[in-house]
Amino acid sequence: MLFVLLASVNHLAGHQLILFRRAGDLDPANVRFMVAANRWWRNLGGSASVLGALLIVVFGLPALDRAVPVSKQAAASATRHEIAGGVSLIPPVGALISKRTRSDAEEGTALFLIGPARYVVAVSRFEGDLPAASTRLRDKIQNMRGYQVTAGETPVMTASGLSGRAGTFTAPGRVGRYAAYLAPGHLIEVTVTGSESDLRMALERVDESMATIAYGGEQK
């Protein structure tokens, strides 16, 4: 990467080419033309270097990332993160924890970025039953402009035994999944949003992470 940058900068040095050091016997008009042409080509070379560096960052690195497989060891070594109220999970492999807020010990949220997809887990106090929890999350989604729940809900369960209900929704330019889990005295709301291609790349890792949601005690 540094090499590409330095290669670009090298085009800016303005060194005289050896060709022109020996061009004293040429017609001055021709020399000017050749110097200008030389500058034009150097400028093109510099621009191509910059463009190449941008393309490496935007397409090359993501392609390399996709090409490198996720090792089971790496996945297993992920640390469990507590959201709030004793609710914790293992983030998706390679996810970036973009934001974590906690209003008190019992309520908090975490936002993970997996590629362009967003994975939000929110924990809040709740005393109702699972259908009420699910309705609350569904209403919250449908109250956002342009968002529409698209299918019926299905029951889901985490590895630690927390039960919940999951569904899907759509919005202009993006789709999403949601799930509401019930823990003692708490509601765990999960939403995943992104474009269809974003979700396709992230969903497997998100599903693995959702399965690790647990309440209280030592979890692995």
Partner: peptide, 21 residues
């Protein structure tokens, strides 16, 4: 806009090649 995919990819590579922690 170009940093976003680059950052994510390099972060993913770090997580895979070294460790998520």
């Amino acid at each position: 806009t170009t940093a976003m995919p680059g950052n994510r990819a390099l972060l993913g590579l770090l997580a895979k090649l070294i460790s998520p922690d």
